[in-house]
Nucleic acid binder design. Sequence first.
DNA 1: CTGAGGTACGGAACCGGTACAGCAGGAGGG
DNA 2: CCCTCCTGCTGTACCGGTTCCGTACCTCAG
Lengths: 339, 339
Amino acid sequence: MKRPTIADIARQAGVSKVAVSYALNDQPGVSAQTRARIKAIAAEVGWRPSSAARALNGAQARAVGLAVCRPARTLSVEPFFMELIGGIESELAPRSIALMLQTVTSHDDEIELYRRWWGEGRVDGALLVDLHDDDVRVAALAAMDLPVVALGPPQAAGDVPAVWSDDGASVHETVAYLAALGHRAIARVAGLPQLAHTTVRDAAFEESCRAAGLPAPTVVHTDYSGEEGARATRRLLIAPERPTAIVYDNDIMAVAGLSVAQELNLEVPRDLSLVAWDDSPFTQAVRPQLTALTRDIGEYGALAARTLLAAVGKEDVRHSQVPAARLLPRASTSPPRTA
Amino acid sequence: MKRPTIADIARQAGVSKVAVSYALNDQPGVSAQTRARIKAIAAEVGWRPSSAARALNGAQARAVGLAVCRPARTLSVEPFFMELIGGIESELAPRSIALMLQTVTSHDDEIELYRRWWGEGRVDGALLVDLHDDDVRVAALAAMDLPVVALGPPQAAGDVPAVWSDDGASVHETVAYLAALGHRAIARVAGLPQLAHTTVRDAAFEESCRAAGLPAPTVVHTDYSGEEGARATRRLLIAPERPTAIVYDNDIMAVAGLSVAQELNLEVPRDLSLVAWDDSPFTQAVRPQLTALTRDIGEYGALAARTLLAAVGKEDVRHSQVPAARLLPRASTSPPRTA
DNA sequence: CTGAGGTACGGAACCGGTACAGCAGGAGGG
DNA sequence: CCCTCCTGCTGTACCGGTTCCGTACCTCAG
């Protein structure tokens, strides 16, 4: 028993395929009575429109693509992605639009994947994540007329509409707060240096320190993993002039950093203040609970999805912003002992 | 400028559409010379096969579906899902098969979603996760002839082929280990009681304690969140007969439990031993590092994907197993003080 | 009673591929 | 030299919808 088609329904109802098509799509051209009869039959036999047949007539694919350029097995290191996907889904699911997810290993592969998806008519648009400085994907995607929305700072997105949050403001708030507490030596354990938002945060960090009259900060770049976060922290803490506060680019490195501090017999926050970028259940699960830069990642994804759908709908789409991450002071920050 | 079709290529090459189709699909029926010419033209104009047109001819959708029945915004609480998806992708991506991901809020919605995806020809098969006892989805999916593979214990999967790991063996190993250390009062902070693997672990836990000659264990069920993990731990530790060891059903609750113990001035592992189910960067980031039940979640997803692809290919598919989670002792377990 | 206009429906073409039968022309065997 | 087989290609139908256009019928105004 194969899937029923509108031809089957037409035969049962004693009308033409066309009448069935009109009836099921609520288009004028059939009487209310016939429409009801056809709909009843369609419901009874469990008819579903073939997405392939629809797409063939130039209709939309009702799916958007998301390629993630990270090793398939290390997607999990940050809760960030699942939260983002959750937010995206919260906009797509009610509209019955699916998310096509695929991991790739290089930007070239990613471009090729989008080209294929778009060429094959499998997606109506795409989301670009992990924006790099001078990102090769931006120009490539713009050139292929695929509706795209980038998640990241506008200056890295070129002509592609970007959804972003003002990380610079968050950095400034954090540095100003630490400076007000009396910290002068503030270090930063940053993420991958080629990511555009890392560059933005790096620059803002330096600028904020200068504005607060602090010496230039030490910045260590990592791959976001707990191990590298721990190693960076160790390096910072055994240096002759060790910082009294460290700001981490994600939650897992901050937790790892806390352990290293305890390992070195430093008391947090008395001997060392810690700030985590991105709040998560883990920042609250450890003791002391970590001061964190919190933002609504779900809303970030949701706004990106809404923006993309607008772009798919041929609307003129501009950059749009979600609120910057807010500093949420907890027990891991205090005035430094020497202050 | 719209997408080129095989008709365009046929015109340029001066042959029929059919010849082009044969040439591009490496089917016999055209000379090597013509084939090369056609392929050159196709590459030049950037032709891609329309997935819609192919699907219309009964071909496959080259996509599999995964619906997750959890609130969209709380997908992130466990790294588990991203690791699983990473593993699934590692099998799908090389075959150019996409993963359709959608979150739903009820099992009825989930069934309806699969019915739609399948009816619309958008997916070739589906993965079933978070298996419940007496899961309504199992029978519903089996009835609609959609190739399905369930991730969970076979006894909950009914006629659907399951990919599973022997949680009972892992529980047994853990309890035997704790008993050997001298623990007698072992408690368990479990996940959602309606999940099939929770039931399996609950039963195995009780059975293992009996086998080791220990009193019946206290089991507290939670929603996997850090807050509930903390509350459960607090309740266990302030009870008159408090346990000397606690086994948690995920990593985040274990980390939260560790904090609660420290809050109550209990030293881990001297006063309390802790075991986390599922290893993650966080179990190693806290001090003491947590003894964990570790398994290759990526391989779990990969095996599920391979099994599903076999089922899609009409192969006769049976239950298959990944290795059970192995106990990895770290610093959070030791003999109890009184022993 | 006639013609205009609206309603309800049917016929045919089309979207972009694939499957299958048919048909030239050349090679090879008897 | 004729018949068969193989090669290389074409024509046509088809998948399951949508859209354009045509047409029969009914209603109502003039």
